[in-house]
Computed example of a mutant assay.
Amino acid sequence: MKSNIFIPVFSIMTLFFNAQVGIKTSTPNSTLAVAGSLGADYKQITAATYSITATDHYLTYDGTGNTTFTLPVIGTGTTSYSGRIYKIKNISTSSITLQASSGNTLRIDNNPVSSFVIPTGAYAEVVNNSNTSGGTWDLSFTVLPKPSNVEIYGIQLLIPPHANGSSPVADWSNHTVSTYDTGTGTDAWWVISKSSVTYAHTSTYSNASRMTLVYEYQGTPFNVSNMYPILTAGNNSSFPDVFTASFVSLANNGTSGRTRLTVSVSRIDFIGSNVNNSNWTGTFLLNLLLARKLY
């Protein structure tokens, strides 16, 4: 015997509008639960201007010049777009001007604006908030690029003891002493030479104890064009000594054209001999940061 089962239309509608829906899960815990990957529209743009459509989601710009992306006009009903999200990534060498249209605005803070610039390498995400007067689109998330026009290198070098201290270490040249070299392999820095000058303290003047040091990098020579050294001196011992480090030169004039850094280090906490000798006897630190501007 054949039986027909009828379900009232209003029951189907109630199930559709009120139930939680699961995809690949029998126990959805949200209005829509997806136990798997989620795909949305992706588009790469190269045009000088582009009007974002209702079907766009993730947009990447890879054009050759500055461009303008215009968000859709916000209306009511099916064109209210409340909650709609657009993701925009700029992989070009130019900028994207993201603008609202027809009196709509972008809300970055409490001051709505008509446009927002997405620079090279940056990412922006906007969501529609259905507010047609106080900032129709919220700029909900932005990621700015790392500084791409600067190269940075840092290392910690050693400041040897003074040649005129109470426990002296004689000056040297031509890398005849390797005790105070730092690093390993091609990232090693050798102390090629050190030249010490003792303090001078008279009734008319005072000169601090100081030392000139030449360090040589053992790796591929740096491109020293537009490179700026930043130096600080550190104390890694129980001694109270305080130092200042001054840049003298940076050039590829070392062994086989290697990079050489020349610095002057001076002890500045006191001058002369007062129980202790201001010609230091410990080994201290020289913090080196090399920053090169690319363009």
Rank of each mutant, 00 (worst) to 15 (best):
N279L: 10
T68W: 04
G165P: 06
S82F: 05
W189E: 07
F17S: 13
D109Y: 02
T120R: 10
G165A: 10
I268A: 07
S80Y: 02
H201N: 15
I12K: 03
L71N: 01
G219W: 08
T68S: 10
G36D: 00
S249N: 15
N253E: 13
A47W: 04
G65D: 03
T262K: 08
S266W: 03
A19R: 03
T14I: 03
Y123V: 05
S92I: 11
S102T: 15
A170T: 08
H201M: 15
N131R: 08
N66A: 13
V197Y: 02
S246G: 13
T179W: 08
N90D: 06
G39V: 14
F247N: 08
Y199H: 13
F222P: 02
G135A: 05
S82M: 09
T60L: 05
S167E: 10
Y199M: 05
T78Y: 02
S264D: 15
L213E: 03
V127E: 12
T79Q: 13
T255N: 14
A208E: 09
T67E: 07
T27V: 09
Y81P: 00
R292D: 06
P160E: 08
G39C: 01
I91G: 01
T49S: 14
Y123T: 11
T179I: 12
T97R: 04
G257F: 11
N279T: 03
V177G: 06
T27S: 13
S173I: 13
L294T: 14
L157S: 08
K87R: 10
I108W: 00
G254H: 09
Q44L: 01
T198Y: 00
Y215L: 12
Y199G: 11
G135L: 07
F141M: 00
D171K: 14
M211F: 07
I88R: 03
L144H: 00
I192S: 04
A200T: 10
A33D: 10
P8F: 06
Q20A: 08
S178F: 02
S249K: 06
L32G: 03
G135Q: 01
S264G: 05
